[in-house]
Design a binder for these strands. Structure first.
Lengths: 148, 148
DNA sequence: GCCTTGATTTAGAATAATTCTAAATCTTGA
DNA sequence: TCAAGATTTAGAATTATTCTAAATCAAGGC
Protein backbone atom coordinates (compact mmCIF):
# COMPACT_ATOMS: atom_id res chain seq x y z
CA UNK A 1 0.00 0.00 0.00
CA UNK A 2 1.23 3.42 -0.87
CA UNK A 3 0.01 6.52 0.89
CA UNK A 4 0.66 9.95 -0.50
CA UNK A 5 3.23 11.04 2.04
CA UNK A 6 4.13 14.70 2.10
CA UNK A 7 7.80 15.23 1.50
CA UNK A 8 10.21 17.19 3.59
CA UNK A 9 11.26 20.35 1.75
CA UNK A 10 14.85 19.18 1.47
CA UNK A 11 13.78 15.93 -0.07
CA UNK A 12 11.62 17.56 -2.71
CA UNK A 13 14.48 19.96 -3.34
CA UNK A 14 16.78 17.02 -3.78
CA UNK A 15 14.34 15.36 -6.14
CA UNK A 16 13.94 18.50 -8.21
CA UNK A 17 17.66 18.94 -8.61
CA UNK A 18 18.24 15.31 -9.47
CA UNK A 19 15.37 15.29 -11.96
CA UNK A 20 16.72 18.42 -13.65
CA UNK A 21 19.89 16.51 -14.35
CA UNK A 22 18.05 13.41 -15.48
CA UNK A 23 18.88 11.54 -12.28
CA UNK A 24 16.60 9.53 -10.04
CA UNK A 25 15.80 9.97 -6.40
CA UNK A 26 17.01 6.92 -4.53
CA UNK A 27 17.22 6.10 -0.83
CA UNK A 28 21.01 6.04 -1.06
CA UNK A 29 21.20 9.48 -2.62
CA UNK A 30 18.85 10.75 0.03
CA UNK A 31 20.96 9.26 2.77
CA UNK A 32 24.21 10.67 1.43
CA UNK A 33 22.64 14.09 1.08
CA UNK A 34 21.30 13.82 4.60
CA UNK A 35 24.68 12.82 6.00
CA UNK A 36 26.30 15.84 4.42
CA UNK A 37 23.72 18.25 5.79
CA UNK A 38 23.74 16.71 9.26
CA UNK A 39 27.24 17.80 9.98
CA UNK A 40 28.59 20.40 7.67
CA UNK A 41 32.22 19.74 8.24
CA UNK A 42 33.96 18.76 5.03
CA UNK A 43 33.96 14.98 5.08
CA UNK A 44 35.86 12.75 2.71
CA UNK A 45 34.05 10.02 0.77
CA UNK A 46 35.25 7.57 3.37
CA UNK A 47 33.79 9.59 6.23
CA UNK A 48 30.51 9.93 4.37
CA UNK A 49 30.50 6.18 3.89
CA UNK A 50 31.00 5.50 7.60
CA UNK A 51 28.30 7.96 8.63
CA UNK A 52 25.84 6.78 6.01
CA UNK A 53 26.18 3.20 7.23
CA UNK A 54 24.72 4.08 10.63
CA UNK A 55 21.22 4.14 9.20
CA UNK A 56 21.89 2.20 6.03
CA UNK A 57 24.33 -0.60 6.83
CA UNK A 58 24.18 -2.17 3.39
CA UNK A 59 25.36 0.89 1.47
CA UNK A 60 28.62 0.38 -0.37
CA UNK A 61 31.61 2.60 -0.99
CA UNK A 62 31.03 2.56 -4.74
CA UNK A 63 27.52 3.84 -4.15
CA UNK A 64 28.80 6.63 -1.95
CA UNK A 65 31.05 7.75 -4.78
CA UNK A 66 28.17 7.43 -7.23
CA UNK A 67 25.87 9.43 -4.99
CA UNK A 68 28.44 12.11 -4.35
CA UNK A 69 29.02 12.42 -8.08
CA UNK A 70 25.28 12.65 -8.67
CA UNK A 71 24.89 15.35 -6.02
CA UNK A 72 27.80 17.31 -7.42
CA UNK A 73 26.44 16.96 -10.92
CA UNK A 74 23.02 18.28 -10.00
CA UNK A 75 24.44 21.21 -8.10
CA UNK A 76 23.66 20.28 -4.51
CA UNK A 77 27.18 19.54 -3.34
CA UNK A 78 30.59 20.99 -4.02
CA UNK A 79 33.71 18.93 -4.42
CA UNK A 80 36.66 20.42 -2.59
CA UNK A 81 40.25 19.49 -3.33
CA UNK A 82 42.69 21.34 -1.15
CA UNK A 83 45.72 19.13 -0.95
CA UNK A 84 47.13 15.77 -1.89
CA UNK A 85 44.76 13.91 0.40
CA UNK A 86 41.24 12.67 -0.14
CA UNK A 87 38.68 14.89 -1.78
CA UNK A 88 36.17 16.53 0.51
CA UNK A 89 32.50 17.30 0.00
CA UNK A 90 30.64 20.44 0.99
CA UNK A 91 26.85 20.74 0.98
CA UNK A 92 26.91 24.48 1.58
CA UNK A 93 25.97 25.89 -1.79
CA UNK A 94 25.92 29.43 -0.54
CA UNK A 95 28.64 31.39 -2.25
CA UNK A 96 31.68 30.95 -0.08
CA UNK A 97 35.31 30.00 -0.11
CA UNK A 98 37.40 27.61 1.95
CA UNK A 99 40.17 28.32 4.34
CA UNK A 100 42.63 25.46 4.55
CA UNK A 101 45.18 25.15 7.31
CA UNK A 102 48.35 24.04 5.58
CA UNK A 103 49.63 22.74 8.89
CA UNK A 104 46.83 20.61 10.35
CA UNK A 105 44.55 20.26 7.34
CA UNK A 106 41.43 21.69 8.94
CA UNK A 107 38.90 23.41 6.68
CA UNK A 108 36.69 26.40 7.39
CA UNK A 109 33.97 28.05 5.36
CA UNK A 110 34.61 31.71 4.72
CA UNK A 111 31.43 33.47 3.75
CA UNK A 112 32.91 35.68 1.16
CA UNK A 113 33.88 35.19 -2.42
CA UNK A 114 34.96 37.04 -5.43
CA UNK A 115 32.36 37.25 -8.12
CA UNK A 116 33.52 36.87 -11.71
CA UNK A 117 32.53 40.48 -12.33
CA UNK A 118 34.45 42.07 -9.51
CA UNK A 119 37.36 39.75 -10.10
CA UNK A 120 37.44 41.09 -13.63
CA UNK A 121 38.99 37.88 -14.86
CA UNK A 122 39.53 37.89 -18.57
CA UNK A 123 39.74 34.45 -20.02
CA UNK A 124 40.96 33.87 -23.55
CA UNK A 125 38.49 33.55 -26.41
CA UNK A 126 36.74 30.20 -26.65
CA UNK A 127 36.86 29.23 -22.99
CA UNK A 128 33.64 28.90 -21.07
CA UNK A 129 33.99 29.98 -17.45
CA UNK A 130 31.48 28.31 -15.16
CA UNK A 131 32.68 29.20 -11.72
CA UNK A 132 35.54 30.57 -9.72
CA UNK A 133 36.83 28.59 -6.79
CA UNK A 134 38.78 30.43 -4.15
CA UNK A 135 40.90 28.62 -1.63
CA UNK A 136 42.55 30.48 1.18
CA UNK A 137 45.74 28.95 2.49
CA UNK A 138 47.41 29.70 5.77
CA UNK A 139 47.23 28.67 9.39
CA UNK A 140 44.20 28.14 11.58
CA UNK A 141 44.13 29.98 14.94
CA UNK A 142 45.57 27.00 16.84
CA UNK A 143 48.44 26.41 14.45
CA UNK A 144 49.08 30.14 14.04
CA UNK A 145 49.46 30.47 17.80
CA UNK A 146 51.86 27.55 17.98
CA UNK A 147 53.89 28.85 15.03
CA UNK A 148 54.98 31.95 16.89
CA UNK B 1 89.50 17.59 -7.00
CA UNK B 2 86.98 20.36 -6.82
CA UNK B 3 87.00 23.23 -9.29
CA UNK B 4 85.04 26.37 -8.65
CA UNK B 5 82.50 25.97 -11.41
CA UNK B 6 80.29 28.96 -12.11
CA UNK B 7 76.66 28.12 -11.59
CA UNK B 8 73.78 28.72 -13.92
CA UNK B 9 71.52 31.42 -12.51
CA UNK B 10 68.64 29.03 -12.05
CA UNK B 11 70.82 26.66 -10.12
CA UNK B 12 72.11 29.29 -7.75
CA UNK B 13 68.54 30.48 -7.39
CA UNK B 14 67.52 26.95 -6.54
CA UNK B 15 70.33 26.66 -4.02
CA UNK B 16 69.42 29.95 -2.40
CA UNK B 17 65.80 28.99 -2.01
CA UNK B 18 66.62 25.56 -0.65
CA UNK B 19 69.19 26.96 1.78
CA UNK B 20 66.69 29.51 3.04
CA UNK B 21 64.45 26.64 4.03
CA UNK B 22 67.29 24.66 5.54
CA UNK B 23 67.36 22.21 2.65
CA UNK B 24 70.31 20.94 0.66
CA UNK B 25 71.02 21.19 -3.02
CA UNK B 26 71.13 17.70 -4.46
CA UNK B 27 71.37 16.41 -8.02
CA UNK B 28 67.89 14.94 -7.72
CA UNK B 29 66.34 18.22 -6.62
CA UNK B 30 68.13 19.95 -9.46
CA UNK B 31 66.85 17.43 -11.95
CA UNK B 32 63.26 17.65 -10.77
CA UNK B 33 63.40 21.42 -10.88
CA UNK B 34 64.86 21.25 -14.37
CA UNK B 35 62.15 18.87 -15.56
CA UNK B 36 59.45 21.21 -14.36
CA UNK B 37 60.96 24.23 -16.06
CA UNK B 38 61.65 22.38 -19.31
CA UNK B 39 58.01 21.95 -20.10
CA UNK B 40 55.68 24.10 -18.13
CA UNK B 41 52.62 22.05 -18.55
CA UNK B 42 51.27 20.87 -15.22
CA UNK B 43 52.71 17.42 -14.77
CA UNK B 44 51.72 14.95 -12.10
CA UNK B 45 54.37 13.37 -9.86
CA UNK B 46 54.28 10.35 -12.10
CA UNK B 47 54.97 12.39 -15.23
CA UNK B 48 57.81 14.21 -13.49
CA UNK B 49 59.22 10.83 -12.52
CA UNK B 50 59.15 9.56 -16.10
CA UNK B 51 60.74 12.71 -17.48
CA UNK B 52 63.37 12.89 -14.77
CA UNK B 53 64.45 9.33 -15.52
CA UNK B 54 65.59 10.27 -19.02
CA UNK B 55 68.75 11.83 -17.68
CA UNK B 56 68.77 10.19 -14.27
CA UNK B 57 67.60 6.60 -14.68
CA UNK B 58 68.21 5.66 -11.05
CA UNK B 59 65.91 8.25 -9.51
CA UNK B 60 63.01 6.77 -7.57
CA UNK B 61 59.39 7.73 -7.20
CA UNK B 62 59.82 8.39 -3.49
CA UNK B 63 62.60 10.82 -4.29
CA UNK B 64 60.44 12.62 -6.81
CA UNK B 65 57.83 13.14 -4.13
CA UNK B 66 60.53 14.26 -1.69
CA UNK B 67 61.98 16.68 -4.21
CA UNK B 68 58.60 18.09 -5.16
CA UNK B 69 57.82 18.61 -1.49
CA UNK B 70 61.17 20.33 -0.99
CA UNK B 71 60.60 22.61 -3.97
CA UNK B 72 57.10 23.46 -2.81
CA UNK B 73 58.39 24.11 0.69
CA UNK B 74 61.07 26.51 -0.45
CA UNK B 75 58.70 28.41 -2.70
CA UNK B 76 59.91 27.40 -6.15
CA UNK B 77 56.97 25.24 -7.14
CA UNK B 78 53.25 25.35 -6.58
CA UNK B 79 51.14 22.33 -5.87
CA UNK B 80 47.88 22.33 -7.80
CA UNK B 81 44.91 20.19 -6.87
CA UNK B 82 42.02 20.66 -9.20
CA UNK B 83 40.06 17.46 -9.05
CA UNK B 84 40.02 13.94 -7.66
CA UNK B 85 42.98 12.87 -9.76
CA UNK B 86 46.69 13.18 -9.15
CA UNK B 87 48.16 16.41 -7.85
CA UNK B 88 49.93 18.57 -10.40
CA UNK B 89 53.00 20.74 -10.06
CA UNK B 90 53.57 24.20 -11.47
CA UNK B 91 56.95 25.92 -11.59
CA UNK B 92 55.48 29.24 -12.66
CA UNK B 93 55.70 31.32 -9.51
CA UNK B 94 54.44 34.42 -11.20
CA UNK B 95 51.10 35.38 -9.73
CA UNK B 96 48.53 33.51 -11.76
CA UNK B 97 45.54 31.27 -11.54
CA UNK B 98 44.58 28.03 -13.22
CA UNK B 99 41.83 27.30 -15.62
CA UNK B 100 40.66 23.72 -15.38
CA UNK B 101 38.51 22.09 -18.02
CA UNK B 102 35.95 20.07 -16.08
CA UNK B 103 35.36 17.96 -19.15
CA UNK B 104 38.80 16.91 -20.40
CA UNK B 105 40.97 17.85 -17.43
CA UNK B 106 43.34 20.16 -19.27
CA UNK B 107 44.95 22.99 -17.32
CA UNK B 108 45.87 26.50 -18.47
CA UNK B 109 47.68 29.31 -16.74
CA UNK B 110 45.66 32.49 -16.57
CA UNK B 111 47.90 35.44 -15.89
CA UNK B 112 45.60 37.21 -13.59
CA UNK B 113 44.78 36.83 -9.96
CA UNK B 114 42.87 38.45 -7.25
CA UNK B 115 45.04 40.10 -4.67
CA UNK B 116 44.06 39.79 -1.02
CA UNK B 117 43.45 43.55 -0.96
CA UNK B 118 41.14 43.79 -3.91
CA UNK B 119 39.42 40.61 -2.89
CA UNK B 120 38.76 42.30 0.42
CA UNK B 121 38.65 38.95 2.12
CA UNK B 122 38.09 39.24 5.81
CA UNK B 123 39.24 36.23 7.70
CA UNK B 124 38.23 35.70 11.31
CA UNK B 125 40.55 36.72 14.12
CA UNK B 126 43.47 34.38 14.75
CA UNK B 127 43.81 32.96 11.27
CA UNK B 128 46.97 33.64 9.32
CA UNK B 129 46.32 34.03 5.60
CA UNK B 130 49.34 33.16 3.48
CA UNK B 131 47.97 33.06 -0.01
CA UNK B 132 44.87 32.95 -2.11
CA UNK B 133 44.52 30.26 -4.71
CA UNK B 134 42.09 30.88 -7.53
CA UNK B 135 40.88 28.07 -9.73
CA UNK B 136 38.70 28.77 -12.71
CA UNK B 137 36.39 25.97 -13.72
CA UNK B 138 34.66 25.59 -17.02
CA UNK B 139 35.30 24.23 -20.48
CA UNK B 140 38.37 24.64 -22.68
CA UNK B 141 37.81 25.89 -26.23
CA UNK B 142 37.68 22.38 -27.68
CA UNK B 143 35.19 21.06 -25.17
CA UNK B 144 33.16 24.27 -25.25
CA UNK B 145 32.77 23.93 -29.02
CA UNK B 146 31.70 20.31 -28.73
CA UNK B 147 29.25 21.11 -25.93
CA UNK B 148 27.08 23.24 -28.17
C1' DG C 1 -0.94 -4.45 -12.77
C1' DC C 2 2.84 -6.43 -15.88
C1' DC C 3 6.80 -5.92 -18.81
C1' DT C 4 10.74 -3.81 -20.92
C1' DT C 5 14.49 -0.77 -20.67
C1' DG C 6 17.73 1.55 -18.69
C1' DA C 7 19.39 3.41 -14.19
C1' DT C 8 21.28 2.21 -9.88
C1' DT C 9 23.37 -0.53 -6.38
C1' DT C 10 26.40 -3.99 -4.78
C1' DA C 11 30.75 -6.70 -3.43
C1' DG C 12 34.86 -7.24 -4.54
C1' DA C 13 38.68 -6.89 -7.62
C1' DA C 14 41.69 -3.74 -9.82
C1' DT C 15 44.10 0.36 -10.38
C1' DA C 16 46.16 4.66 -9.17
C1' DA C 17 48.26 7.79 -5.95
C1' DT C 18 50.84 8.47 -2.10
C1' DT C 19 53.35 7.30 2.04
C1' DC C 20 56.24 4.47 4.78
C1' DT C 21 60.39 1.66 6.02
C1' DA C 22 64.92 0.48 6.81
C1' DA C 23 69.30 0.38 4.86
C1' DA C 24 72.76 2.71 2.14
C1' DT C 25 74.78 6.94 0.78
C1' DC C 26 75.80 11.51 0.92
C1' DT C 27 76.92 16.32 3.12
C1' DT C 28 78.29 19.38 6.43
C1' DG C 29 80.47 21.09 10.21
C1' DA C 30 83.51 20.04 14.13
C1' DT D 1 88.70 12.36 9.53
C1' DC D 2 84.56 11.66 12.04
C1' DA D 3 79.90 12.05 13.74
C1' DA D 4 75.35 13.58 13.01
C1' DG D 5 71.90 14.29 10.37
C1' DA D 6 69.87 14.78 5.70
C1' DT D 7 68.79 12.45 1.54
C1' DT D 8 68.02 8.70 -1.55
C1' DT D 9 66.57 4.19 -2.67
C1' DA D 10 63.65 -0.12 -3.62
C1' DG D 11 59.99 -2.04 -2.50
C1' DA D 12 56.23 -2.86 0.58
C1' DA D 13 52.20 -0.87 2.47
C1' DT D 14 48.48 2.08 2.64
C1' DT D 15 44.99 5.01 0.93
C1' DA D 16 41.89 6.72 -2.56
C1' DT D 17 39.32 5.89 -6.41
C1' DT D 18 37.52 3.34 -10.31
C1' DC D 19 35.96 -0.69 -12.62
C1' DT D 20 33.23 -5.00 -13.35
C1' DA D 21 29.49 -7.96 -13.82
C1' DA D 22 25.48 -9.46 -11.69
C1' DA D 23 21.39 -8.28 -9.09
C1' DT D 24 17.90 -5.00 -8.08
C1' DC D 25 15.11 -1.15 -8.83
C1' DA D 26 12.23 2.64 -11.12
C1' DA D 27 9.53 4.64 -14.77
C1' DG D 28 6.85 4.57 -18.75
C1' DG D 29 4.11 1.91 -22.10
C1' DC D 30 0.68 -1.48 -22.65
Amino acid sequence: MRTASPKAPSESNLNTHLANSGLRLTPQRQRVHEVLREKMDHPTADQVFLRAKDKMPEISMATVYNCLDALVQCGLVRQVTLDRGATRYCPNMQDHSHFYCDNCGSVYDILQTISPEEADIKIPRGFRLDNIETNLHGLCPDCAAKAK
